[in-house]
Amino acid sequence: MNIFRLTGDLSHLAAIVILLLKIWKTRSCAGISGKSQLLFALVFTTRYLDLFTSFISLYNTSMKLIYIACSYATVYLIYMKFKATYDGNHDTFRVEFLVVPVGGLSFLVNHDFSPLEILWTFSIYLESVAILPQLFMISKTGEAETITTHYLFFQGLYRALYLVNWIWRFYFEGFFDLIAVVAGVVQTILYCDFFYLYITKGMSGCALPA
C-alpha cells in the first residue's frame, strides 16, 4: 500500500458516500444518471467476486463490502425509493453500446481466460466508461448541482491517483498491469474536460457551457 493508492481509495469512498448522502438528504436524485450508477454496481459486483475466494486484508475486504453496499443502496434510492425524482428523460445514454463492446473486449484481451479473470477484466473496462451516461446527462441538461460536481471530482480523482500508484508500484515493484493502466488512462481522460470546468469555473452550481 502507498499513499497514492490510499488517497485514491479514500477519494473513491468520498465520492460514493457524497452521492449516497446527497440523494438521501435531499430525497432527490435529480441530475443523477441512474444508468451510470447501475454500471458502477455491475463493476463492483463483477470485480469483487473474489471476496468469496481469497482474503487479502481486513481493509481490502471491508472496503469492497462498503463499495458494494453503497452502490446498491444508491441504485435502490434512484430506481425505487426516490423514483419520482429520477430524470429519465435526460438519462438516455444507450448503455448497451458500452456493455456489449466491453463484454466482447474482455473475452479478447485479458490476463487469463478463466471466469473470475474475465469478469475482473470486464469490470476494469466497464469502469473506464461507466461515467459516460452521467457526463452525457450533464451535457444535455447543461447544468450540475454543486454536490454532484464534487462527486464527479472525487470519482475522477481516484483513478488519477491510481495512475500515480501504478507508476510507484512499477518503479518499486518492477511490474505493472497493462489492462488496468490502459483502462485507467482512458477513464481519467474522460474526466479531463470536467476537471477543467470544475477547476476554472469552480462549477459551484453554475450552468455548464453546453
Binding site: 473513491h12 481469497s54 487479502i56 469492497k64 490476463h111 518492477g174 511490474f175 505493472f176 498491469d177 488496468a180
Partner: peptide
C-alpha cells in the same frame, strides 16, 4: 511475464 494483474487492489 513482466506484467500481471495486481490482486490486492480495489
Amino acid at each position: 511475464k513482466q506484467w500481471s494483474r495486481w490482486k490486492d487492489e480495489l
